[in-house]
């Protein structure tokens, strides 16, 4: 039995094979977090809260439709209710994997549709602490992903994945994501700057079951360096509504159909 350890390793091999790689975890997480359902609709209420507790409100209806499989192309349509000076404004994104988005904005005051430059996915979404990437996802291939350990967040077992940008041009150093082992939702994420200091923290504060799909209906992004945070609540969330492809067009950007944006 001198070679007991060989048998031991051999016994573990199937388990090793079953364990997910960092990239697989993040792919499943992306599918669970950003791609569930064929389409999706939510009334999004964003509270931008500064360190003194002063609040600003951003409220919109967000519609999303997947063009293909998880990780593939998506179309987003947003209609703004608040603040008052952007009411009735609409915004459309065609999101492509491994390619810059196409974005359009409709300015109702002058009835004009405008294509807008979009190469910076790391810029703030409507002034909040979320970036465009936080809202619509970051390409899995842009980072190296390693499962560092497993750990509980609250009562949930999680993979802890460290993601480091492959390119040198990223404006952050790395991020660490706690991915729920059961439903693959990211329950927590910490972003580190290039000096290694933690500067942003995401938390999924409430997960609800919507049409059988676990959905993070409350989430917070906090800037740890400025103390500013953004709390997001998804209300009236729904999946698989049969949103037509034609919705994502200039026609409806100019005249958003009431049935989709209420």
């Amino acid at each position: 039995m001198k070679r007991w350890w060989i048998w031991m390793i051999a016994g573990l091999l199937p388990l090793q094979a079953l364990a997910l790689s960092g990239e697989e975890v993040m792919k499943k997480s992306q599918a669970a977090f950003l791609y569930p359902g064929k389409d999706f609709k939510a009334r999004v209420v964003m509270k931008l809260i500064n360190k003194d507790g002063q609040e600003r409100l951003r409220e919109m209806t967000m519609l999303r439709k997947n063009v293909g499989e998880a990780g593939g192309e998506q179309k987003y349509f947003m209609y703004f209710f608040q603040p008052a000076d952007v009411k009735d404004m609409t915004f459309m994104i065609y999101k492509y994997p491994a390619k810059d988005d196409d974005r359009w904005m409709f300015i109702p005051a002058i009835n004009m549709v405008k294509r807008i430059a979009a190469q910076d996915k790391r810029s703030s979404f409507v002034g909040s602490d979320f970036t465009y990437e936080d809202v619509s996802g970051r390409d899995i291939e842009d980072d190296n992903h390693v499962v560092e350990r497993e750990e509980k967040v609250g009562s949930r077992d999680c993979y802890v994945v460290k993601s480091t940008p492959k390119g040198a041009d990223a404006d952050f150093g790395h991020k660490v994501t706690w991915v729920d082992k059961a439903n693959f939702l990211p329950l927590k994420e910490e972003q580190y700057d290039r000096k290694g200091a933690r500067y942003k923290q995401f938390t999924a504060d409430e997960v609800a079951d919507v049409k059988g799909i676990p959905t993070a209906v409350k989430r917070t992004m906090k800037n740890l360096q400025t103390g500013h945070r953004t709390e997001v609540a998804y209300v009236k969330t729904d999946y698989d509504l049969g949103i037509e492809d034609s919705l994502f067009s200039e026609r409806f950007l100019r005249q958003p159909p009431r049935k989709w944006v209420d």
Binding site: I116, A118, Q119, D120, R122, S123
Partner: peptide, 10 residues
């Protein structure tokens, strides 16, 4: 030609 070279600047 319109460009956004850094965050919040166009």
């Amino acid at each position: 030609y319109q460009i956004q070279p850094v965050e919040d600047l166009s």
